[in-house]
Amino acid sequence: MSEARVTTSETARAVQFAESFGRENLELREVPAPQAGPGQIRVRVAAAGLNPMDWYMTSDAATAARFGLSLPVGFGTDYAGVVDQLGDGVTGFALGDRVFGGAMSRAVADYVLIDTTGTIAAGGQAHHTPDGVDDRTAAVLTIAGSTAAAALAVVDPGPGDTVLIGGAAGGVGVFAVQLARLAGARVIGAGSASSAEALRALGAEPVVYGDGVVDRVRALAPDGITAAIDLYATDTALAARELGVPDGRITTIAAQLHGITPANGANAAPGAIEEIARLAAEGRLRVPIAASFPVEQFRAAVELQAGRHVHGKVVVEL
C-alpha cells in the first residue's frame, strides 16, 4: 500500500480495490493523474463523503458486476473540490470553480474526471458549490440529498401531515427529516435511544424503533400518522401499514414491498440537489458531519460509516 503524497502533477493518490473486492481490500495507491478529455472537467478533490452504497456495491465481485464495476476500481461517490483542468468543448465551468457532485466508485481520490453531460453512474455529475457551503458539507450532499428528495416526492408531505421516518438519524435521514419539516409536516423520527437528542435538534420527535414501535407511535401521535419513509429496511413501512397509512403514502429506499413505491436518488427531480445546496447555504438545512478523517485514515472512516450507527455523515479529506 502506498501512502505517499502527490509530489508531481503526473501522479495522484486514490483509494482503490486493486486485486479483490470487500472493504478490507481497499488500498491507498499512487496512480497516474487523470487528464481531462473532450467534454470533461478534472476536479481536485478536497473532500469525499461516504454512503452505505459505497461499501455495499463493492462488497464482492458479483455485487460489483451488477453495478458495472470491475477491478481495479476506486471507492466512494460523493465529492467536492475545485475545477483544475478543462477538456475541449467544456462550457458552464471555468478553472477555479468550486464544484460538488457524484462519480460512482471514484470519489476518494486526489482527482476525479467528470463528463459535463454525464450522470453519477456514467461519467459523473458536477454542480456549482454555492457561497456559504464549505467543501466538507458540499461533499455529503449529493447521494443522501437526492435520495431524501426522491423519498419526499413519493409521499409528498405538507402542512397537516404527520410523517414517520425510520432510520431518521442516518445519512439520508438527516435530510429527509429537515425537508419534511420545511414542507410544514410534523415528523416522528424512529431511531436508537442514543439518537434522540440528534433527532430533536433536527426538528423531529424521536421514538425508539424495534418491538413495540407501533404502540409508541400511537402514544406520541394519537390522531395517527399520514405518511411514512423507511430509510433502513421494511420495519417502518410495515408499522405504517399497521397504523393505517395507505401504501401510496409509504416509501422505502433500501428494500421493496409489494404495493409500495420505492424511492431512488437517481430519480430525484431536476434541480433537487441544487435546491438542497441552496437551503444549506442559507442556513435553513443543517448538515451534521459526524466525523472527518484525513485520507491516510480512510480505513477508519469506512469502518465507522459501515457500522451504520453514526449520527450524520462521514467525510474523508484529501
Rank of each mutant, 00 (worst) to 15 (best):
L304S: 10
L238Y: 01
E296F: 03
H258Q: 15
Y209N: 06
F298P: 05
E274M: 08
D215L: 06
Q305I: 05
Y232S: 06
G307N: 10
A291C: 09
T234M: 00
G259I: 13
V207G: 02
T251F: 02
A201K: 12
A237R: 02
T251E: 00
R308L: 05
V310M: 03
G312W: 08
G212P: 00
V214G: 01
E296G: 15
D215G: 15
V207W: 04
T252Q: 07
A291H: 13
V310A: 14
S292C: 01
G210P: 00
N264E: 09
A263H: 02
V245S: 01
T261W: 01
T236I: 09
I225V: 14
T252M: 12
V217W: 01
G271F: 10
H258F: 09
H258V: 15
P222G: 00
I225Y: 11
A301L: 11
D211P: 01
A268G: 05
L257T: 10
H258E: 15
R249L: 06
V310I: 08
A240N: 00
A204D: 05
R241E: 14
S292L: 00
A219N: 05
E296C: 09
L285G: 07
V287A: 11
A301T: 10
T234A: 13
Q297D: 15
G212C: 02
Q297A: 15
R249F: 02
P206W: 10
Q297I: 08
L220Q: 06
E282K: 11
V207M: 06
A237H: 00
T234F: 02
I276N: 08
R299E: 14
A266D: 14
T251R: 12
A268D: 02
A300K: 15
L279H: 12
I253E: 06
G212M: 04
P288N: 04
G224R: 01
Y232T: 13
A280C: 02
V213P: 00
T234K: 04
I225C: 04
H309N: 14
A227C: 01
Q256G: 13
E275H: 15
H311E: 10
A306Q: 13
A281I: 04
L202F: 13
G212F: 04
V295F: 09
D247I: 10
R278T: 12
F293M: 03
E296N: 15
N267Q: 11
D230V: 07
N264M: 14
A219Y: 08
T236H: 10
D247K: 14
L220C: 02
I253V: 15
P222N: 03
H311N: 09
T226A: 03
G224Q: 03
V287E: 06
A269L: 03
T252R: 07
A269W: 00
I289T: 07
A228Q: 00
F298D: 03
